[in-house]
Design a protein around this nucleic acid. Structure first.
Lengths: 172, 172
DNA sequence: CCGAATTGTTTTAAGCCTAAAATGTTTTGA
DNA sequence: TCAAAACATTTTAGGCTTAAAACAATTCGG
């Protein structure tokens, strides 16, 4: 219970700048637990994708983005959505075009822009994988009640907002 | 509210095997949100570590494990704790030994085993980074109340258990 | 005791990922 | 108009990561 240290801090802050190093052990533990959950699930999904479909997780993720955008997306859009670097997307797309899953063309109106889409093959394969993928996720979260799921959604939304705010403070 | 589809499913399951593809959109959305939170925070921490200390996140994570083990750890232990592959640890350790942050020696009692420890330099540098790192995490989670933190901890513990159970079902 | 499994680590091959610099294109504003 | 700024992408250099195979050492069971 952090009440005591909170009190001390508040008393301090009324009189002078805070020098006492504050205790953030709880937040740290929360972060580690969040990371553990994600790593665990991600690893499981990665392994199943490889075993069942011989596909990598990043490839699957990229195709998932494109499946939601029938008219295609620019590389920048994909990069932002996936929260990975531009250069990363370049390579990923290269390999997916090579394997026939993606179609890439230069925009008519802006020659800087590359628009990528799923090919018919790419879409078909993705849909097949996505259907099974969904059951894996359901199984991984099977012990959570619908109420747990709702509550987690809410708290993670709050977490996301908090982290975005903090990131914006540093890099405005 | 999933009550209706739940009912349908329950009625079905009493009479015959379920053929209806079930809807797991909520769990899928939860997973994506979890992943977004982690990616966001991880990216932020990665950037700050690089900027402030010119160190990579995996190096920091490895040092964090060793800081908790004054008598050292074996490579396997580290690999399990970090949830990364053995080969990954080998390379990571190589570079950290090279830079003088780690000490590695073959176990006296079992010549297969490599025991690694933080050097004095490694420990000093880690402690310096960890202190600042803790404030970043606190800031990233700043908008969560203590109650939110407790509740998230509880739900993520449940999530972790559920995922581990699911993983064990597949790979017993 | 000794061959077979097991365990711990390294190697290999391929792909993923980032930050930063470079390249090419479009927009902006004096 | 036209140079500077902004933008989209690619390239570069280095490091991270995995799965699988290879290697080395120990343990186990007959």
């Amino acid at each position: 219970m952090p009440a005591l240290s909170d009190r001390i801090h508040m008393l301090d802050s009324e009189t002078k700048a805070v020098e006492t190093p504050e205790d953030h052990a709880e937040e740290l533990r929360l972060w580690l637990r969040l990371l553990t959950c994600t790593t665990l699930i991600e690893g499981e999904v990665r392994g199943r994708l490889r075993q069942r479909f011989d596909v990598t997780l990043p490839r699957f993720d990229l195709m998932a983005q494109l499946d939601k955008a029938p008219d295609g997306m620019t590389l920048s859009d994909v990069s932002k959505r996936m929260m990975v670097s531009n250069g990363n997307v370049t390579g990923l797309v290269e390999r997916l075009v090579e394997s026939g899953h993606l179609d890439r063309r230069t925009s008519e109106t802006d020659r800087r822009v590359q628009v990528i889409r799923l090919t018919k093959l790419g879409r078909a394969e993705f849909r097949r994988m996505a259907a099974e993928h969904e059951t894996w996720i359901a199984d991984l979260f099977a012990d959570l009640t619908p109420k747990d799921v709702r509550e987690l959604m809410r708290l993670l939304a709050k977490t996301k907002a908090s982290a975005q705010k903090s990131a914006a403070r540093r890099r405005p």
